[in-house]
């Protein structure tokens, strides 16, 4: 804004890389698989409870109502929640800061100045590896939100962001501790 405006020729198209980007869409699949596992895990005790009353002469509820409801709720949740979650996510790497917004129930907007970053990791769990996704973990010395995580980036992209951040930190002309 203040200085070093690039030639006018390029200002026609808005710069691609300043917009807030969304995650890789395949992260929804990862979340879905995880949620499905969790729902099944929670459904098991309900099913077991239902089964114990299968032959009861005077059941509190007809057989299958409880576990059926659980199944429907679990399925709906598994299908819908990752979509909502994906929609709420956005991030951007700007010249001096990492920007992130996320949260379905509670919306959170976070600005992490790059010079405050202590170190950066890219991590993957088994599922994410299957989908070639990486998770960018930015560590700061903050007292509360000390780890800022951006999940669901294509691995090369995550690594490139990591390297950009690293370069910014290494080239910091101010010789002072980040804390």
């Amino acid at each position: 804004m203040e200085a070093s405006s690039p030639p006018a020729a390029v200002s026609a198209a808005p710069p691609d890389d300043d917009r807030i980007r969304s995650l890789d869409a395949s992260i929804q699949a990862v979340w879905r698989i995880k949620l499905a596992g969790l729902s099944l895990f929670l459904l098991l005790p309900v099913l077991f409870y239902d089964l114990t009353f299968l032959f009861s002469p005077d059941p509190w509820l007809p057989f299958g109502v409880l576990s059926g409801t659980g199944l429907v709720v679990g399925t709906a949740f598994t299908l819908l929640w990752p979509r909502l979650r994906y929609r709420s996510w956005g991030f951007a790497l700007w010249p001096e800061e990492l920007y992130r917004e996320h949260g379905v129930i509670t919306h959170v907007r976070t600005v992490v100045p790059l010079r405050r970053i202590q170190h950066v990791d890219v991590s993957q769990d088994l599922l994410e590896r299957e989908f070639a996704l990486g998770r960018l973990v930015v560590h700061t010395a903050g007292s509360r939100s000390s780890d800022v995580v951006i999940p669901g980036l294509p691995l090369p992209e995550a690594e490139r962001i990591r390297d950009e951040i690293k370069r910014f930190i290494l080239e910091d002309p101010l010789l002072e501790d980040p804390v």
Partner: peptide, 11 residues
């Protein structure tokens, strides 16, 4: 698409 306008801060 190399050149970019001076990026505006998020804020």
């Amino acid at each position: 698409a190399h050149v970019s306008a001076p990026s505006s801060p998020p804020t």
